[in-house]
């Protein structure tokens, strides 16, 4: 009976794995194909005549190093700022008692449900007014605070027994000692995985940068990708896939480095009270 049920799960997981991996493998494979083969041999995973031409072309036609650097700057700045503000706000919501704490928290959390389309135009007008259009700072600025991170990190902090904090207070530990010496190390998995989530969201952000950025030199990677999909000369899938592969290398690398924290956050959140 036990073997049967585990087999069932294995089959299910294999299907899930196939569904999630297939597009990635498809993208990598297509990026090494010639255009004629991409249309003729759509599903073939191994290119008949593997070529680096697509990659050479994107590096020749675009300031890809600059674009990658822009994307890295935006994603890192957004992630670092958001994590710092989220950690500090979550700490205050968990360990400080102040009037209106719960109300403030509810208001803050309800901002998660405000759609991007609602804030898009006011944000655009503000950024234009302060002259940050066509500037990556204009891309970064509206993304700097976010209630999702406060929510996730607060949940993790709440699972730390209060006696840990009390024991530290008895030792005359100040707030920074408690925050950096005790709370942050224990909430590390949640902080890191929230950070990864912020990073990937910001890395993939398309609509906001496309509104703000005009010059190719200021572009982020998702905008570069779009150049090859809707260009006047028709869509060159192979080149677009090459840009896709370049786009996913950094987030994928970060995931590989931090995967143990990400997994522990998502597996423990269901078990802990």
């Amino acid at each position: 009976m036990k073997i049967d049920s585990s087999l069932k799960w294995h089959v299910l997981l294999c299907i899930a794995l196939f569904v999630s991996l297939m597009p990635i493998v498809f993208a990598i494979s297509t990026s090494f194909k010639e255009l004629s083969e991409a249309y003729g041999n759509v599903l073939g995973l191994i290119p008949h005549n593997p070529t680096m031409a697509n990659y050479l072309r994107i590096f020749q036609e675009l300031p890809l190093n600059q674009i990658t650097l822009n994307t890295v700057i935006v994603a890192f700045a957004v992630t670092v700022f958001k994590i710092v503000t989220s950690v500090m706000a979550a700490y205050a919501f968990v360990y400080f008692n102040f009037k209106g704490k719960n109300l403030l928290y509810i208001i803050l959390i309800s901002t998660i449900f405000i759609p991007f389309t609602m804030t898009m135009i006011p944000n655009y007008l503000i950024i234009s007014q302060i002259g940050l259009r066509n500037n990556i700072i204009g891309v970064i600025l509206p993304q700097l605070s976010d209630a999702t991170g406060i929510f996730l990190i607060r949940q993790a902090m709440r699972s730390i027994p209060l006696s840990f904090i009390e024991a530290a207070r008895l030792e005359q530990a100040g707030i920074f000692h408690i925050m950096f010496g005790i709370v942050l190390p224990l909430a590390k998995p949640a902080v890191i995985s929230t950070g990864i989530m912020f990073f990937i969201n910001s890395w993939n952000e398309y609509v906001w940068p496309v509104l703000i950025l005009k010059d190719t030199a200021n572009y982020t990677l998702p905008l570069a990708l779009q150049l090859f999909i809707s260009s006047e000369g028709g869509t060159d899938f192979c080149v677009a896939m090459a840009v896709s592969v370049v786009t996913m290398i950094i987030p994928l690398g970060l995931y590989l480095i931090f995967q143990k924290y990400i997994i522990s956050t998502f597996t423990s959140s269901g078990v802990k009270g």
Partner: peptide, 20 residues
């Protein structure tokens, strides 16, 4: 007077040992 300044130590029921 805050707890840190009372010159006392305490053993908690769950021991409050820092896991890290």
């Amino acid at each position: 007077i805050v707890s840190g300044k009372r010159n006392l130590s305490m053993v908690f029921q769950n021991y409050a040992l820092y896991p890290h």
